[in-house]
Design a protein around this nucleic acid. Structure first.
Lengths: 203, 203
DNA sequence: TGTACATCAGTGAACGCGCGTTCACTGATGTAC
DNA sequence: TGTACATCAGTGAACGCGCGTTCACTGATGTAC
């Protein structure tokens, strides 16, 4: 647990190290409450009070961690579809990237989407524009991808239905591995069912 | 915070009061970690050590609370469909009851389904039979209801897709109320889309 | 009917622990003159 | 070039708190004889 002091003007570097330590602790323990200020300090190799130069309190660390998770997710979604032009395949790639993020960082995913931001103080007002919501960017990508697959009466509704399905699968599969989950591909196909262009079905 | 001692032979009554106190605390605070042994004792109007006559440790209280939540959910599902014979309407009533439970007891719902029971000690082995899983009974009802709506190649897959959709919607709607959620009826219709008998669609 | 004893349903005080946060500080690196 | 001072990047000790758990106990209610 040795660590050299940062040079002059590089004090801000510790900020990143603090968030990284908090992220590592979350991903290893699986519990948001395991992110204690003292624990993060220990992990980062610094004294506990040193954190206060960078964050006003414990909560601010977690907030930063969550914001970073959303940014990372959005980046992964963007990267996943940048080389694909076919709308149907783009949509599927997007879904796969979404699930991949939840797979690689299950606890960050859960904490990011699972924190209750009810109607109390610090919560968004009811009329908040989507892009400003946490994860709003990622959802916007989903809506666009869904809309691109064909003429739909309500692409936002379809995207929402797809999103809740992806989210439910991601969280439940991580939390209840003993459940006899279908193949990921079959699951995705089933979730995308109602977003596919429908036509006559024989029977 | 006055409370009379239980009569002889009625000591077990305190057990229920403890679980009820824990449930109330969870539902009021929204945090699983707010269920502290001392807090539960205060709420129940007893001294902290009195709990040890009924539970070996703090965790056992939460386990009991979760088991109770699953039983309650299953009961609500059963009650919701008992007077309906039409398979399609039965399925929809089941979904509505499921969402109603998550609505009435959002935190109990989240804790019940959200606790990570990974592959560590105390977790179910991979081959566990469904009914033994927490919530397995409720899921079984869903599978039956889906299967009853028509001939399907894989009703379990369809039920799973529906379940993850319901779960995702229930948890996200509770956690992110600022999102522009569609009408619950529209949402449900969208989630049930791929379980409805498909036929030719005009376009 | 009395009385000694057993059981039941709890209590009060204490333990050690990790937590978030405050406080006054320290030593290295830069800047003014 | 020296030197006084400012700033930066942290530290060590201490605070009060609530926690889970253990311990020896108490008083009321029942049972044996």
């Amino acid at each position: 647990v040795e660590r050299a002091k940062n040079r002059w003007g590089e004090g801000a570097r510790l900020r990143e190290e603090i968030v990284a330590a908090a992220t590592a602790m979350l991903e290893e323990t699986g519990s948001e409450d395991a992110i204690t200020l003292r624990g993060v300090a220990r992990r980062a190799g610094i004294a506990a009070p040193s954190i206060y130069a960078h964050f006003p309190d414990r909560e601010a660390i977690v907030n930063t961690l969550v914001a970073q998770a959303f940014t990372e997710l959005d980046g992964m979604l963007a990267a996943a579809v940048e080389d694909e032009r076919d709308p149907v395949r783009r949509l599927r790639l997007l879904c796969e990237a979404y699930l991949a993020f939840a797979d690689v960082a299950p606890h960050r995913y859960r904490v990011a989407f699972g924190r209750h931001r009810g109607t109390g103080p610090g919560s968004m007002p009811a009329g908040t524009r989507l892009p400003q919501l946490s994860g709003g960017q990622a959802f916007g990508r989903l809506v666009e991808a869904v809309a691109a697959t064909g003429d739909r009466p309500d692409p936002v509704l379809d995207a929402t239905a797809l999103w809740v399905g992806l989210h439910g699968y991601a969280t439940l599969a991580a939390g209840v591995p003993a459940f006899p989950w279908p193949d990921r591909e079959d699951m995705l196909t089933a979730l995308l069912q109602h977003t596919l262009p429908r036509g006559p079905v024989s029977t």
